[in-house]
Design a protein around this nucleic acid. Structure first.
Lengths: 162, 162
DNA sequence: CTGTATCCTTAAAGATACTG
DNA sequence: CAGTATCTTTAAGGATACAG
């Protein structure tokens, strides 16, 4: 969509993440891979997207190191890399949000451990003590540019009213 | 982008979530709101997107109950609702993934508690015991349709090889 | 300041035919 | 089976002018 805007200029790791999995299909492909999908046809059938789009996304995700492409050239198998697996917490958190706020507490998919026991709600913590979103504060990190510092400084004064 | 595909047909809470915050700007707007942004001009300056796009996104996020629009008609203030605040774990998780895998451990923004101490990495757990992504399993939930059940059944046999 | 209204560009998505 | 190659459509996004 006329997206010439380069999100990377935003000096924000969220924007960086969205640059890789921020389109409408990539995260769903990662989801399917997490569920066990391996082959082109499996993703295609599950998601119902056009073949050329799927081919493009698989290529990009592999180029970005999220998926690996293994096996025979003619019939390859896609697997999540460590980088791709590391998306699981974010992905599950988003799924849980959808369960609660979109699906009305009627989850289509239940996420469990190896023994079939439901996982906890993904939450925020500091030294393992739970934190609410209102407890959050933000400060410039080592990668902050001057603009980010300005913005955070301007915002910090009123974060309390949240 | 020629997106006629209705993600909601996917019977998946992740798709449902992406239907609301799955475009390139919405999550970044939520991020800014979490950081303390309140006004139209603040979002616009921070993100640098076109005014009409921002207006559209704010409208949609408000319609979806993620933001509330308060105060004077002429100079309203946007705040996160509970539903919007509930996105924080997913948003922070994605930001942390970007910190680690995109920004190369040079986070532009540091997330802390009220006392300025960094929050924990958002992770998966079951009864407060940490879980790795490879520990995850999936089963049909109460909202699963027949197609989802079929897919999960087909995938479950090989989730072990992950 | 906070939008709305237009116009324009472009890239994303879909459909489909073809190939090794 | 797993793509590639084309072609077309359309909606997202940008720019800008205008308005309350």
């Amino acid at each position: 969509m006329a997206q010439k805007t380069d999100l990377s200029r935003l000096n924000c790791s969220l924007a960086g993440a969205l640059g890789i999995v921020g389109d409408w299909w990539s995260l769903l492909i990662v989801r399917d891979a997490l569920l066990g999908a391996r082959r082109f046809a499996e993703f295609q059938k599950s998601l119902g997207l056009a073949r050329n789009i799927l081919a493009d996304r698989l290529k990009r995700l592999a180029a970005d190191g999220v998926l690996s492409r293994e096996g025979p050239e003619r019939r390859p198998v896609y697997k999540l890399t460590e980088k791709g697996l590391a998306l699981a917490p974010a992905l599950i958190a988003l799924m849980q949000w959808g369960d609660r706020w979109v699906a009305g507490d009627r989850p289509p998919v239940m996420v469990t451990d190896r023994d079939g026991r439901p996982v906890d709600a993904v939450g925020l913590a500091r030294d393992s003590r739970p934190l609410t979103p209102r407890d959050l504060r933000f400060a410039p990190g080592v990668g902050a540019d001057p603009e980010t510092r300005m913005f955070l400084a301007a915002m910090s004064s009123r974060v309390e009213e949240r």
